[in-house]
């Protein structure tokens, strides 16, 4: 009943989403957008796992996705905490303000 989908297409979709997330991370100066773009990238990775899991008809792909999900949850929690802290200190969400690592 289910039409089979070529693995190639699923992976290409993941690649496209990943590249779009990368563009977002690189171009946005608002740190909230940066974080959102990161979510897109993580999600693309999860998609790739699901596609592979589907190809071999194994549960491992979904398990990997679950783990990525927990990682994303933890990352978002910490990242948003940092954003709040940053906003308190600098009154801005401009990522370029955080340039104290300059060598």
């Amino acid at each position: 009943m289910m039409g089979a989908i070529p693995v190639e297409h699923g992976l290409i979709l993941a690649g496209i989403l990943f590249s779009l997330g990368l563009i977002g991370v690189l171009t946005r100066r608002n740190i909230v957008f940066v974080l959102m773009s990161l979510e897109v990238m993580l999600n693309a990775c999860g998609l790739a796992f699901i596609v592979a899991g589907s190809r071999w008809e194994q549960a491992d792909g979904q398990i990997m996705f679950v783990l990525i999900l927990t990682l994303a949850a933890a990352e978002v929690a910490v990242g948003l905490g940092l954003i709040i802290q940053m906003y308190r200190r600098f009154q801005t969400v401009d990522i370029n303000v955080l340039s104290e690592l300059k060598g």
């Binding site: 989908i5 070529p6 992976l11 190809r55």
Partner: peptide, 12 residues
């Protein structure tokens, strides 16, 4: 582009 194979019809 060279990856072969189709996704499985069955649900996991």
């Amino acid at each position: 582009s060279g990856v072969e194979g189709m996704s499985a019809p069955e649900q996991v």
